[in-house]
Design a protein around this nucleic acid. Structure first.
Lengths: 265, 265
DNA sequence: CTTAGTAGTTCCGCTCTGTGGAATTCACCG
DNA sequence: CGGTGAATTCCACAGAGCGGAACTACTAAG
């Protein structure tokens, strides 16, 4: 007893999600495999899988369990929980076309950046690849754009929670250095990532604001040898700024819009 | 005790998901609102929300709770759990362009049809709208295409589970009539929906098979006045058949492909 | 400044429910 | 047929989740 895991969380719910995460990583897996990996009794695992299957969040095919397609609906609900998120999509597509690079829309949740839209320029292989991916805010251009426009107190909380782990050689791992950087971002209105997240990869981003708060960031990323010079420093940023500007207008003056989704579950 | 709700499911997990579903429907909601709606004690609701928030599946902003963006990742995992699902996307886009109508890729899970890709022809408003939506199989062209190529026993199970509720005036609500229809679909290789799901809406679909089993269906839908005659009966179907054919080849001979996703959670 | 009202959070004891081990059944295969 | 490994069911125990009540934090009045 006295697991004292995380203060006072509901253990049963945690276990259910641990199983879901295991399925997410393993793909189709058998019961014993999951029970082993999580150190659970098979009977316990069985009952969780049974429950999740009844809820349609887990599918089974013979003796293989896998993640259920019902999650597609929840994922969609998350991606559209704020109408602003939807409005960002066409701008991301436009940026991808204009720059020929990968364009993204990133939002902050629980101190992490989440890719909500990802579009690749012309040769669009892997459409939507990367959607839902989570990144640390301190080591990406989008993350820095968001942090730069968040209250100092919030930034501190986030850094306390996630630290400043080094992902690449240029990652900013010093708190004060990051504060300086954020100041620069605020002055310039644009954030840059020079191989801070992945070696060989550059990026640049601008915040998308509503009522002074950053709802997210538009970003463009690509190989560092291609993203350089004036193109990287000025031209791409000005395209993003134009897009962000337009988006901010939509977002601010369209809180009524049609939201006639509402499908019965 | 002896709730005997659903045989022997884990109640705690059910409750957690009930809360998630409430958030999905309500959007940003306060604790008391949720507790009320579900008939739970506030203390209980609080603890569930706390747990889900720790897991990042729920976000809170002040005293409003809402669905967490982490679900975007699970949704993505669901949408890509089978590489065939990804391969279908470009074909859906192509069909949308060729026909100018709404094109879809639908898959069966737990006896329901799930839209995994939705693309609207030219004037593509609402990109991705409808993804994750769930429909009954008996009243949609895609559903019938899938049922027609599933073993009779499975079809029975599905009909037992979900029945044949009427959604529109032409919905097939008789089991034997449906069996006949499925036979026709098998012969013709194409399924039609003539205002069976929504009045004023027609659709047509073809199965996408792998090893004899239907992994999903490609479908095209649109207003019944526009989808008529030869265009509806022959031309659109042949476009879909061509697409399905090509897709089936990809799907069958590419079980190795690169699946280098694997992002650390 | 006090008081009342509302919503959220914490505390606490009860008991019900989730748990793991053991027993049973199932499904292959030699 | 027996034998192996996996999934499922059974069962008794205690730990965990539950709701009610107490407490706190804010607001709005008076």
């Amino acid at each position: 007893m006295a697991d004292r895991n995380d203060n006072d969380a509901i253990q049963t719910t945690n276990t259910s999600f641990e199983i879901i995460h295991a399925l997410q990583e393993l793909g189709p897996a058998r019961l014993s495999e999951i029970a082993d990996r999580l150190g659970l009794a098979e009977s316990t695992t069985h009952r969780h899988l049974q429950t999740l299957s009844d809820l349609r969040y887990v599918s089974r095919d013979g003796d293989r369990y896998q993640i259920g397609l019902r999650f597609a609906r929840l994922g969609r609900a998350a991606q559209t929980r704020d109408p602003a998120y939807e409005m960002a999509k066409p701008h991301v597509q436009e940026l991808a076309e204009e720059t020929g690079e990968r364009a993204q829309f990133v939002v902050e949740d629980h101190g992490l950046g989440i890719y909500l839209h990802v579009e690749t320029g012309s040769r669009a292989v892997r459409v939507g690849f990367g959607v839902g991916r989570q990144i640390h805010l301190h080591s990406s251009s989008a993350g820095k754009a968001i942090l730069a426009h968040s209250p100092r107190e919030r930034v501190d909380d986030i850094l306390d929670q996630w630290g400043l782990p080094a992902h690449a050689t240029n990652t900013i791992t010093d708190r004060d250095a990051l504060y300086d950087e954020l100041e620069t971002v605020r002055e310039r209105g644009v954030a840059f990532n020079r191989e801070e997240h992945v070696d060989g990869l550059n990026g640049t981003a601008v915040p998308v604001k509503r009522d002074g708060r950053a709802v997210g960031a538009l970003a463009v990323a690509g190989p560092s040898h291609r993203l350089t010079g004036e193109w990287f420093e000025d031209e791409v940023p000005s395209m993003m700024l134009a897009a962000a500007n337009e988006l901010e207008l939509n977002v601010t003056y369209a809180s009524d819009a049609s939201s006639t989704d509402h499908i019965v579950e």
